[in-house]
Nucleic acid binder design. Sequence first.
DNA 1: CCCTGATTCGC
DNA 2: GCGAATCAGG
Length: 187
Amino acid sequence: MAWTDERVELLKKLWGEGLSASQIAGRLGSVTRNAVIGKVHRLGLSGRATTSRMKSHRPRPRLAANNKRIANNKQRFTPATTGNPALRALYQVEQEVYSPPAEEMVIPKAERKTIQTLTECSCRWPIGDPQSAEFHFCGKNKVPGLPYCDFHARRAFQPPQTRRREREVVEPMVGGAIENLSRKETV
DNA sequence: CCCTGATTCGC
DNA sequence: GCGAATCAGG
C-alpha cells in the first residue's frame, strides 16, 4: 500500500506521540515496522524528543552485511550441482571435469523421499534445490552397494564426456559393483 | 528471546 | 522512494 497523504499524516502524528514503529505499523496496517522506520527517516522525523535515550550510534555494517547477502543469494540461486562432490572424490580415479547434467528425472510426488522418509534401499540422488520445500530424493531402489539407483549410479559415476576412443578402458573404481556399471555404455 | 530504532542497498 | 535484511542495543 502506498504512502498516501493521510497515512503519512497519521504516521507523523503517531510518531510525534511517541508510539514505536511497530505500534504505528500495526495501526496503519499493510506495512511493517521496517517500512515505518524507513518512511520516518525519509521524512526526516528520526530522533524523537521522547524516548531519546538511544545509545551510541553503530559504526557501519555496510560491506559485511552486503557480502553476506550476496553469498546467500549465490548459494540459493546458483544451480546445485548434481551428484555428490564428496562421493565423486571417492569414486573417481582421476580428476575429471564435471560435466553438466542432462535433465533432472521427474519423480512422481508419491514416490518422492525426503530425508525423513528415505529407507535403507532408497536411491539418495538429490533432486531440486535443498533450500526448497520441493527438495527430495529419487527414492527408487538402490543398486546393491551403491547409494543410487541404476540410472543415477550411471549418472554419478560416468567417466568424462570427452570420449576416449572406442577403447573399453575399465578403470577399477570402488567395489565390484561399479565395475559392472562402468563397463556398460555410458548414459 | 522479546523488543527498540538505524542503516544499507537492491529493487 | 520503498522496505527487507541486517545491525546494534535495551
